[in-house]
Amino acid sequence: MKQLTILFGILTFLAFPVLAAEEAFVFDDPAKQKIFLELTQELRCPQCQNQNIADSDAMIAHDLRRKVYELLQQGKSRQEVVDFMKARYGDFVSYKPPVTPLTVWLWLLPPLFVLIALGVVFSRRKKQTEDFDEAVLAKADSLLEKDK
């Protein structure tokens, strides 16, 4: 049993380098490597929508990954790469939508709902305490007395 566990452990570690070697985009600068990984997560594949270009195997995703790599190697900044893609594929290509009069609701609506809900809850609670019925309370008290 113990041998099996050790074997399993060894196999697990053997598998990791295989994953890493899937596609070789080598960077000298680890900072650039990090930006590359972030960008391929954040950019959306225009062909297989709902996949980012890191996940997608469509040809366009391959091409976009290669382009991101090229641009970063040329010393372009993260924002410059995003702008490059947006100029060609529109805002759609980024999973981070820009703030426009239309999209601003994405951020405004959730807090707005929370505020409205809180408002409703508080106003109701206040009304309940105001509408307190003395007669009902007296009746309840007498019932409790009887039970004793």
């Binding site: 062909q47 366009i60 060609r88 594929y89």
Partner: peptide
């Protein structure tokens, strides 16, 4: 060039 044109397929 396809990429410059925003071609998806």
């Amino acid at each position: 060039y396809s990429l410059d044109l925003g071609v998806t397929g």
